[in-house]
Amino acid sequence: MPRKAGDDGQDRRRCRAALRRRDLLALPVTLAAADQPARAQPAWAPSRPLILIVTSVAGSMPDLICRLVGDGMSRLLGPVVIQNRPGGFGTLGLAEVARAQPDGHTIGYCNVVTMAINDAMLRRQPYVAERDFAPVALLGFVQNAVLVHPTLPARTLADLLALLRDAPGRFTYGSPGTGTTGHLAMELLRSLSGVELVHVPYRGSPQLAEALRKREVDIACDSLSSLEALLRVGDARGLAVTGPQRTPLFPDLPTVEEAGWPGFRITSWGGLVVPSGTPAAAVSRLNAVANAALAMPDLAARLTALAFEASPGQPQALFDLAAQEKPIWADLVRRSGARAD
């Protein structure tokens, strides 16, 4: 049948309309296909209880912090089981983490000792941190305090140093262990002031606090959170804190810097790691949950009461801080003459 004039134009219009209808009908399918990868990759979730390995003894400051953070994480991810693995300057516990299955279910607590100081203190370690671990979170900071037994006739740091100069080698100081920030802080103070005193390392903070209370040692240097109970009941006298500023918990305690030693600033910090090779989705979820735990009002209040300054952030902040501080601690170890026993 012959085509009428104008049929071509009508055909073209019908074709364009059909194409538009096809494109509109296909659009939801296209969008759904584009969204399919996101829907196929839900947020990582554990399939069994998480294990949090703490490299310090039960009752120590790291243990208390990990139990609080673990409590918060358990509210969001399910049970978190704390396992204390002290020893070897913190390397025994972290070696267990390095050997664990990299599936997000085993987390390790690390700190300034295991991530920065040990490189200068130990000839060898059972792992290479940057190779064998993936960072999860930098939890935060706590500063140390210098305390004396209340029977010691020293009410300021200057008094203490004068006493030590008059009786070289007669007095003892305790730390929660060789290579800890408490040990190195006192060794640095000793080397700067020229005094002589005897170091007595303990297996952890609880043992050190009890030793000072009984005056098995004359002086102690450890995290403020580990010693503050002694201060509150009068079983010890505080002379100074080692951080960059005074603590709101004991505002009358000056910093070592204020007491006459410019540039003397030593703080402890801690964080969480997982075995290298842990899926990025698991690391991201653990980081988000750890940060959320630090922000929970009840836990934040208890952490503040421990003189702990929370520092939530991205995982890499932990390794960045360790890299920044390693040369500082190496220089401090060299200057102080501190050595692993």
Rank of each mutant, 00 (worst) to 15 (best):
R3K: 09
Q10F: 11
Q10W: 14
Q10C: 10
D11S: 15
R16K: 13
A17D: 08
L27M: 12
A33V: 04
D35E: 15
R39S: 05
R39Q: 13
A43G: 03
W44S: 05
A45Y: 00
S47K: 14
I53N: 05
I53R: 14
T55S: 08
V57I: 14
G59I: 11
M61D: 08
M61C: 07
D63M: 04
L64S: 12
I65L: 14
V69L: 12
G72E: 03
L76V: 01
P79S: 07
V80E: 06
V81T: 11
Q83H: 07
R85P: 03
R85M: 15
P86Y: 09
P86C: 09
G88Y: 01
F89K: 07
T91V: 09
G93M: 08
L94G: 01
Q101P: 08
P102S: 09
G104I: 13
G104M: 10
G104D: 10
G104H: 05
T106Y: 08
C110A: 14
C110R: 00
V112Y: 00
V113E: 13
M115S: 15
A116E: 10
A116Y: 03
L122H: 06
Y127C: 00
F133W: 04
A134M: 06
A134Y: 04
L138A: 06
L139V: 06
F141Y: 13
H149V: 06
L152A: 02
L163A: 05
L163T: 08
L163F: 10
R170L: 14
Y173T: 08
L188Q: 12
S193C: 07
V195C: 01
H199A: 13
V200D: 10
L208Y: 07
L208R: 09
E210W: 07
A211P: 04
R213T: 12
V217S: 01
V217Y: 05
C221L: 07
L224N: 04
L224R: 12
S225L: 06
S226H: 02
S226T: 01
E228R: 15
R232V: 10
D235R: 12
A236V: 00
T247I: 06
G260R: 05
G263Q: 03
F264N: 00
G270Q: 11
V274N: 03
S276W: 08
T278N: 07
P279R: 07
A282T: 08
L286A: 02
L294R: 09
P297A: 04
P297W: 07
A301Q: 12
L303W: 01
A305H: 13
A307H: 03
E309T: 12
P312Y: 04
L318P: 04
Q324S: 12
E325I: 04
P327V: 03
D331H: 13
G337E: 11
